[in-house]
């Protein structure tokens, strides 16, 4: 175990790195979400092409929301690495 302050610091550094890596797994969900959004869009566009052009805005809003939720995980990782 941490016998002296130097060891404790090294342990804390290690914990930060592991925590940052774990926090980044949040982006997995974002990736699935964004894939879902674009996949469903394409599916819908193939079925009813005439309605596709009007939905571009919604498409990007949906993709952005899905991705932004994952970005919180990235922010936590960055905070762990650069701030704490």
């Amino acid at each position: 175990m941490a016998a002296n302050p130097g060891d404790a610091m090294a342990l804390a550094e290690m914990g930060k790195a592991i925590g940052a890596g774990l926090a980044c797994t949040a982006l997995l969900g974002a990736a699935i979400g964004v894939g879902n959004v674009f996949g469903s869009y394409l599916e819908g566009a193939m079925r009813n092409p005439s309605a596709a052009a009007g939905q571009t805005g919604n498409l990007f809003v949906g993709a952005a929301l899905a991705e932004a939720a994952g970005l919180f995980g990235l922010v936590v990782a960055l905070l762990l690495l650069f701030v704490f």
Partner: peptide, 9 residues
């Protein structure tokens, strides 16, 4: 007549 047929992407 099928304007906008093509997907955006």
């Amino acid at each position: 007549e099928e304007e906008g047929t093509d997907g955006d992407l």
